[in-house]
Design a protein around this nucleic acid. Structure first.
Lengths: 222, 222
DNA sequence: ATCTGTGAATTGATTCACAGCC
DNA sequence: GGCTGTGAATCAATTCACAGAT
């Protein structure tokens, strides 16, 4: 747990920095698709809504990618970020829960196109088991553990009701999954070496109403 | 912009504090449904995965809700949080984009049950316009502005492709919408008084692969 | 004995500001 | 003249630690 100087090259990169890199990568991809070759931190700041100084400092954790007086080469920086984030390879995922959300995920092309491949899908509902959706055949949830041990994945997607989510997370963890994307409206227990990201639109809405509630709301008389 | 002592009762509550309140509320609701009457910051901490000191400090921005030596009355604190967050009333929302994600949102009961009512839904695709889904009839996107001016909403949900999202946000802003939940994978420009929350699973995944990439991944041979 | 509420201390993140390079 | 990379300075968030209440 103590930082090993042999391994820890740059002391330890704050999570909040890592979490901004994908955003930069997305902005760079946009610029790249437009054929732009060079970008300054100021310009990237306008696109990403992060300050120029923040961008430069974030990048400086990983190396020196820019040219003074000029800026960053778009293609080069994009590739570096992909390398840093581990986006050059494909990642295998298992989806658990094929209800409304799970189905939207399976049919959504946006994961696969970014290198996130859904390798398995599971549900408890026998009426959907056997169906082929997106790239996979839905299997019964009872096969989850066995199947993942034989054909492991890197990432688990949890899209089951809140009450079942903890059970699912426990199984995923037992199968060696180290990253979980959770759509269930609850915060599951897990070992500290397991990454977890929450997709929780209701919490997001509830955070916004606080700011809304004292305004002379747009809800005029109808 | 300078804090007006008449208005600003407590100087200004950090966003990061406000954003934790919904989580506390959810945990309290769970305890309440189990019939628990009193909870300590330590116990709430275990449920919410926030430290006890943090919880106490967060709550102290808004008042003194606990009893020393005893803890917090679950029902009372829950009600206070609802009041603070503005969750005692219903909120009206408009959904723009009824593709895969939009459809999942419309059919999802989780918004309505928390007081977030979808009052309108819009899409450009004539083949879905006129369909009745969830609680509403889908209308053509060209009617968006006119309709929102007549029957305003508090919150806009953007579930259109990235390229159209900015246009939609601009319209919503013109119609007086002050809070936007954005599912499009891009960060739209908007005035600073407009709240925006991003639902972006791909960014979440990309943030996790950074931590994954150096592990001897669970993806064993073949 | 237990647990809140809160200033003070600490830790962490962001911004500043400028030397150095193109 | 313009822009990066970065230590130093500032600002913000979290944790500590304890007085005071039950």
């Amino acid at each position: 747990m103590t930082p090993n100087p042999k391994t820890a090259r740059v002391t330890k990169i704050p999570d909040v920095v890592v979490d901004r890199l994908p955003l930069y990568a997305r902005c760079l991809a946009l610029l790249h698709s437009r054929g732009q070759e060079v970008v300054s931190s100021t310009e990237l700041a306008k696109l990403s809504r992060v300050t120029p100084a923040q961008i430069r400092k974030d990048l400086s954790y990983f190396g020196r990618f820019g040219k003074q007086g000029r800026g960053y080469n778009v293609a080069k920086l994009l590739q570096e970020l992909w390398r840093i984030l581990g986006l050059e390879r494909q990642w295998r995922m298992a989806l658990v829960g094929v209800g409304r959300i799970g189905r939207a995920i399976l049919e959504y092309g946006g994961f696969a196109s970014q290198g996130f491949h859904i390798a398995h899908a599971f549900d408890v509902d026998h009426s959907v088991v056997g169906q082929e959706l997106g790239s996979v055949t839905i299997r019964h949830a009872s096969e989850l553990e066995q199947r993942l041990l034989k054909e492991p994945v890197d990432i688990g997607i949890v899209a089951v009701p809140a009450l079942e989510a903890q059970t699912v997370v426990d199984i995923l963890v037992r199968c060696g999954v180290k990253s979980i994307l959770n759509y269930a409206p609850m915060c599951p227990r897990r070992p500290s070496d397991v990454q977890l990201r929450q997709i929780d639109p209701v919490l997001a809405l509830q955070g916004m109403t606080f700011h809304l509630k004292n305004k002379k709301g747009p809800t005029k008389k109808h």
